[in-house]
Amino acid sequence: GPIMLESYRAIADYTKSSKYELNLKAGDLVDIVEKSQNGWWFCQCENHRGWAPAAYLEPLDDPNEAEEPEPNYAGELYKTIKAYTAVEKDEMTLEAGETIEVIHKLLDGWWVVRKGEETGYFPSMFLHKTGEKREV
């Protein structure tokens, strides 16, 4: 049968920063081909195809995005595979190889992580699941 693609609407203008991305204008409609957990979604828009940031897209059908998982305050253990330096106040700065707990996996690819007493947003793209159980 035909493949039904989900339609999303751009909520703001976005100018691409690399070759395989899509430029978006607020109000543009795109069909989603693939949703990557890292927050880049592969979309098609008329004759264009490319990656767009999920943060700039809202679903046409359900603006409340029921698919967004609930936070898990118990946390899931992940390891950072790349260092990231916070740009905004609510982000976390971490070195590569640090173990942290993921408490909320947001669709835009910026996950809420906890290390000790500190929490903040971190790019999911730089995280790898350890598969270990958290010590209680």
């Binding site: 703001a12 395989y20 880049w40 940031p53 943060a55």
Partner: peptide, 22 residues
């Protein structure tokens, strides 16, 4: 390949457009 996703984290939305978060 065109299906290779960007290697940089996606941008965060402008603050006024951020989704409701718990």
């Amino acid at each position: 390949s065109i299906k290779q996703p960007p290697q940089n984290p996606p941008p965060r939305p402008p603050p006024e457009l951020r989704r409701k978060r718990a």
